[in-house]
Design a protein around this nucleic acid. Structure first.
Lengths: 192, 192
DNA sequence: ACATCTTGTTCACTTAAGTTAAGAAAGACG
DNA sequence: CGTCTTTCTTAACTTAAGTGAACAAGATGT
């Protein structure tokens, strides 16, 4: 499991054994059961998550309806906006599968960053990359119809369609579950 | 004009006079006329932009239609995804007003970052903050209707509605110009 | 001053998504 | 095993956005 992490890190910076040990000694790994809620609306948190195995989901409760906005799966990282802005969270984070996560908190990150400048560099590169990716995803969402978005998701993250309940997927695509169902039927019809 | 920049930077790190001079000596300031295209689809670029005055816009050409996805105004920064991924750009960047920009390129950033670790820190903080902001904007977009999005934009960036052509705004809201027109009429009717 | 292009609005019509309700299928649990 | 819940689909109806066309107002250019 640790190897997965170090493989990931090696894409950004190369670590010495000493640095690797420093990370391991922080004891960041945590196993979490399906259904666990990692963060609740209104809660102040300082935790960031990195998914080693499993899938976590962020959602808002609007008019007592869950609005799912993101899924994070293997090798994806999430620092909630509320951690950056130091305000109460506007959304929930929950595990939709049994997960193995890496959990860090901002105090610890600050300490590690100042002790090992390489981490600072890695964090910058990763944030820049994630920002670029997020902007592309947002652009794609804006410029396409629900049906196109579904087809695109089928291409880019086919695993999600298998492992995630339809009504959460629908919400993620910005539509109602019934619309997703109908849209899928429409696509099947076109193919035949 | 430089003061605006240093005021902005001071929100992230505090610079010594020497460091400020180092920045000034890089000669990053550039005045650009309305209508100038800063980046074209298919082009490889290494430039990042920081808007000191004016407004720049990113758009895609899809089926010979312009799809506007973002506006960057005073004190906002843009590093195109294509610069991060080192691939040809998928979109255009153009100035919709006369602008004063700060233009940097990635080689130069790398050099400054390694010379002044403070810059590395600033870049990380800024990227993290922008990522958090982008995710919140994306979430808001996903969870609301075109009408809600327009009303929200009216709240959060009322200046945009004044300074940007309606058809570009419509595209930015993910709808057709006619729909925006209708939606605005609907809102006016409700108020009365 | 005139022609042209861009921009924004309106209208009629089409298409797709929202809504409400009902029922089938799959899982969870005692 | 049956009961209860969650999940998914289908259908009928409503609402809103897409589409194509026409028109008016402004800006641009010659």
């Amino acid at each position: 499991m640790q190897d997965l992490l170090f493989d990931f890190i090696s894409k950004y910076v190369s670590l010495s054994e000493e640095e690797k040990n420093a990370i391991v000694s922080l004891n960041l790994f945590r196993s979490v059961k399906k259904g666990t809620i990692l963060l609740q609306e209104g809660q102040k948190s300082r935790e960031s998550y990195f998914v080693l195995k499993g899938c976590i989901r962020t959602y808002y409760l609007i008019d007592s309806e869950e609005k799912t906005t993101a899924f994070y799966t293997e090798m994806e990282a999430l620092t909630p906006p509320s951690v950056i802005s130091k305000t109460p969270s506007e959304y929930y984070i929950s595990c939709i599968e049994d997960c193995i996560l890496l959990v860090s908190n901002s105090d610890m990150e600050a300490e590690v960053n100042s002790k090992f400048p390489k981490f600072e560099i890695m964090c910058r590169k990763l944030s820049e990359e994630l920002l670029a990716k997020e902007r592309m995803d947002f652009d794609e969402f804006k410029t396409s119809s629900p049906e196109q978005r579904y087809l695109n998701l089928l291409q880019s993250r086919p695993d999600l369609i298998q492992r995630v309940p339809q009504h959460q997927l629908a919400s993620y695509l910005g539509i109602q579950p019934q619309s997703l169902s109908r849209l899928r039927a429409r696509i099947l019809e076109k193919k035949s």
